[in-house]
Design a binder for these strands. Structure first.
Length: 585
RNA sequence: GGCCCCGUAGCUCAGUCGGAUAGAGCACCAGAUUCCUAAUCUGGGGGUCGCAGGUUCGAAUCCUGCCGGGGUCACCA
């Protein structure tokens, strides 16, 4: 039950009548016609700009054409009144008999209400987090993690086949540094005095447990090995250990990936890196060459070296990108190219990369790769999350990554809880910066939107519990609720809630199309607001209370409405990955 | 210097593929609880949508230029 879809159809059929009548030319473009909720409730329930958009092809003034359209709309089903306003808006007032259908649809569809199939047939790969396995996740990873997860939920909700993917760099210098750092800790665990951790190695103590594990398994054996023997062994152990830590941190904020993709699996003889680059070389897109010096300030140690390059400029990038360094090693980007190829081979049509704002420079090269490999068949969508600034009581929290001092995601979860983190992170557009204050977000105050929305859900649950106990409320069963007299819901506040419910599918589709899960969070807030407002009206006007023992029929209808709201809250919070709590005390 | 993002109420932010009188929370002021959870609600004041042009029936939204803030800029991961 999407009323806007319904009335879009109504408007379309009216336009077709006008085409048949010759008022409008054949093949009139209807794509610019909007059928949507007006910004102001006073303007009716549904509004369309059709007359203004079609005025030119019709050769009429907007308001004159609006009159013609309005006349036809007046005769359509479900339309109670039609008004022309402003420069030519056509405002529809929906027949009161329509609203019960909205509630009924929400109840019947329940957990499916708001879902759609607009994404059917388009498989999407959403890659997010993808932090290196060299340490636990910290707050810097948090926003992208939550955003990516909610986006994946959202896309799945509208019918996409979604795979949630984590790409981890287990090849290259960083993980060797990790292994050496662990080796040092290992010797420390065995009783050796290692002194200060040399610069260039990871100083933080989170590696000690890995070292202890190694000591348990191997005793002191590794000390006697040459580096080229212990390094790969420790590296493997350390990566496995860190990935386990990362996975469990992610689970603690309700995030689960479908695929953990290893960078090193791309390397090796005959592997994707080799074959992908070879194929591009065949096409002349990978070649030996030199790069112009970088613009602006020239780095001290810049040298004009011959490298192996990917011809990114042919696909819209600013410069060609190195795939094999002057020392013969592959760049990280070379693995990226091969990685994209594997995604493309897995038949994804959209590859979404959720990255931090500091990776903005990667957008063009990733899109260039997509164009080169898929020829435009698959699309790379890069979504950048702005950084999060941490505060405590208004004071910035200082972090120094070099000294190993940073707030880990785990600490954040332990202190404020997953729901607060997720909702706050999603209650903002992803490309806007975010200040996160430990103290403010844990206060259960009115300025905390998480509790506001959860409270609405808890309130409904409370009403249900009370209704189940009282004589009038035995109709908490599903069928009893859908068969009750929903046309008794006539109070302005009740209608306002129903209108919100009616918007949900549209909001979900808009949010999905724009890749903006925050729209769901704001919608949740508005729906909660409508519910709280109606609750409070019952204080002054007892006959409007959800449970009115003198009026069992109205009570049954309102319980049905509550249940519908509960489904919407629960479905929406489900997309955000926030738990719809049943009780708050 | 090149590229990307941001600039909306005192503060933090929404603003639907361009729509009507630009919205919400906080803060401030005035109210609401014998009664379904006051973690709630009702009312009030508060705006040069950074600036200047352009596109059109119509611009916070699209285009150009400028101002201000942030990010990023060969072989690093």
């Amino acid at each position: 039950m999407d009323i806007f879809e319904h009335f879009r159809t109504t408007v379309s059929s009216v336009i077709e009548q006008l085409v048949t009548a010759g008022t409008l030319p054949e093949g009139t473009d209807m794509s610019r016609i909007a059928v949507e909720p007006p910004r102001e409730a006073a303007h009716g329930d549904v509004t369309t700009n059709a007359a203004m958009v079609l005025a030119k092809p019709a050769g009429q003034r907007p308001r004159d054409l609006a009159e013609t359209i309005a006349d036809l709309l007046r005769r359509s089903d479900g339309v109670a009144a039609v008004e022309i306003a402003g420069p030519g808006f056509i405002n529809l007032q929906i027949d009161a008999s329509f609203w019960p259908d909205v509630v009924r649809a929400a109840l019947e569809q329940g957990e499916r209400y708001g879902r759609s199939d607009i994404g059917a047939g388009v498989s999407v790969n959403v890659e997010y987090v993808s932090a290196n396995p060299t340490g636990p996740l910290h707050v810097g990873h948090c926003r992208g993690a939550v955003f990516g997860d909610a986006l994946a939920n959202l896309l799945a909700f509208v019918g996409h086949d979604v795979v949630r993917e984590y790409y981890f760099n287990d090849a290259g210098g960083q993980v060797d540094v990790l292994a050496r750092s662990v080796f040092l800790r290992y010797r420390e665990v065995l009783g050796e005095d290692i002194g200060e951790i040399p610069s260039g190695l990871y100083p933080a103590p989170y590696l000690i447990p890995v070292a202890r594990h190694l000591a348990d398994m191997h005793g002191a054996d590794l000390c006697d090995m040459p580096e080229d023997e212990w390094l790969p062994l420790i590296r493997r152990e350390a990566i496995e250990f860190m990935m386990a830590v990362i996975r469990s941190d992610l689970e603690a904020i309700n995030i689960k990936h479908d695929v953990f993709f290893s960078e090193s699996s791309l390397h090796g003889p005959g592997g994707p890196v080799e074959t992908t680059l070879a194929a591009l070389r065949e096409r002349g897109l990978v070649f030996e060459g030199r790069l112009p010096p970088p613009k602006g300030q020239l780095p001290e140690d810049w040298e004009d070296l011959e490298q192996t390059l990917f011809r990114a400029t042919e696909f819209g990038d600013d410069v060609d990108r190195t795939v094999i360094k002057s020392d013969g090693a592959y760049t990280y980007f070379a693995a990226d190219v091969a990685y994209f190829q594997t995604k493309y081979d897995r038949n994804f049509k959209q590859m979404i990369y959720v990255l931090g704002a500091d990776h903005g420079g990667y957008v063009k090269r990733l899109q260039a790769v997509a164009k080169a490999i898929s020829g435009g068949d698959a699309e790379v969508i890069v979504l950048l999350c702005q950084l999060v600034k941490l505060f405590r009581g208004g004071e910035p929290v200082r972090m120094s990554k070099r000294a190993g001092e940073f707030v880990t995601l785990r600490e954040l979860i332990d202190e404020v809880g997953p729901d607060v983190i997720r909702f706050i992170m999603l209650f903002r557009k992803n490309d806007a910066p975010l200040d996160f204050d430990f103290e403010k977000v844990t206060e259960q105050t009115r300025e905390n939107p998480v509790f506001y929305v959860q409270y609405a859900h808890a309130r409904i649950c409370s009403v249900m519990r009370n209704a189940a106990r009282s004589a009038s409320g035995d109709g908490s069963g599903h069928l009893a609720l859908t068969n009750c007299h929903l046309n008794l819901l006539q109070d302005d506040g009740e209608i306002a809630i129903i209108k919100r419910i009616a918007e949900f599918p549209r909001v979900v589709q808009g949010a999905a199309a724009a890749h903006e899960p925050h729209r769901i969070a704001f919608y949740m807030y508005e729906l909660a607001s409508a519910l709280h407002a109606q609750w409070n009206r019952g204080k002054e006007l007892p006959h409007l209370r959800f449970i009115d023992e003198k009026n069992p029929d109205a009570t049954a209808a309102r319980l049905a409405l509550c249940r519908a709201v509960r489904y919407v809250l629960s479905n929406g919070l489900g997309i955000l990955g926030v738990v719809p709590v049943q009780e708050m005390r």
